[in-house]
Write a protein that binds this DNA or RNA. Sequence first.
DNA 1: ATCCAGGCTCCTG
DNA 2: CAGGAGCATGGA
Length: 303
Amino acid sequence: MKRYTLTLSPRPPFDFQLSLRFLSAVPEESLNRVEEGRYFRLFDVGGRAVLCEVQGMGTVDEPQLELSLVGDGLDGPTVERAIDALRRVLNLDLDLEEFYAALCRDPVMAELCQRYRGYKPILASSLHEAVVWAIIGQQINQGFAYRLRRRLVELLGRRMTYRGREYFAFPTPEALASLELEELTRHQFSRRKVEYIREFARAVQAGEVDAVENLQGLRGIGRWTVEFAAMRLGARDALPAADVALRRAVTRQYGLERRATEAEVRELGERWRPWRGLATFYLWFDLLAAEGPATTHSSCADS
DNA sequence: ATCCAGGCTCCTG
DNA sequence: CAGGAGCATGGA
């Protein structure tokens, strides 16, 4: 296996360790891995497995990353595509200053921006990944959702062993399209979730879904899923207003008496335009800081 | 046992 | 078209 190292310059401000904190709080994460302050991510680049290892350097205002690519047959185009994928996933080109400047008029958000200065949320690497990820998260608690996601990735994703550790890529549409129901219901997925995932993967495979706009009308994909997926793809103004966690965060931060309704979140969110997506990430981040990691029991002794 | 969880579909009025 | 019952699968 070849190894190829280069330096990246994210747009400042960028706090690499802070941005990884969301992941460190999720023990079930096997797609975005954090080990000893380094970030690992395996991509399937045109059929080739490419492992990215990222180490933070520099400061929040002059950030630098050292990126190492590991894989077989690393030719120029493959390297280019892997770097591009990594830049998008780590959200390196996001201009936080613009966001902070736009939201400084809202005292609540201004406070969060100051407290979490440099936080860039980790994104999904494809529409396919974002939607499947979202479907799994529908209507179940986060701890359980992370377990299901981990199983999906480890059962069906491509893997690479490096320095004695295993890394996984997100399963391809092909892998999910040909799934038997039982392969996942055996692992605590509901039949419905598997059906939704499989039907969606087949639509992707058939080339019917290449943009967020095409999601409408697919079975199992409602408004929340579209907004959530768009947000995790970096759509900076996407607002999953029905999201329970967001509603909780809004309730707390804006001092409401009762759980904010979807309508209330939409109304409040008007003041975050055109950054409602990033505002949501910041509110979630704060919720994590306030409440601790997703509630999930420790043992993961399954098959 | 009961309520809740980062919803969705389908059926009413 | 808005509102709500019913749904599937587990956690706490």
